[in-house]
Amino acid sequence: MAATKELQRELENKANDLNKIQKDISKNHQVRKKYTIQLGENELVLKELDLLNEDANVYKLIGPVLVKQDLAEANANVRKRIDYISAELKRLDATLQDLEEKQNSKKEAIFKVQQRIQSLQAGKAKA
């Protein structure tokens, strides 16, 4: 009796952990989506900047004002931003994989606990 209760508690804990991991995964997905959109936008900007003439006037909106920027500088900034976003995406991928692995192992553990509970109950029914 006590053993089953303990197992049940263990199962509950594991289920909670699994829930947490799943929440993390969905959060990760959302962040990823945002970054992918930003990456697309930055790539578009870079393409347009590459097409501009050397002497074209480029501005950056900082708060309420447009600040004039050097084209080369703007170009470098956008590239840096793209690099940053790509690195971030890679990092997110790694964490996502990690989380998924954790999720799978948790699922397996839960399955095992469930089996143990079942076998215990079956044994009790026989007895």
Binding site: V45, L61, I62
Partner: peptide, 13 residues
């Protein structure tokens, strides 16, 4: 025209 290219960058075109 001042065109918004995205990400807060504008260009005079």
């Amino acid at each position: 025209l001042t065109v918004l290219l995205g990400e807060g960058y504008y260009a005079e075109r």
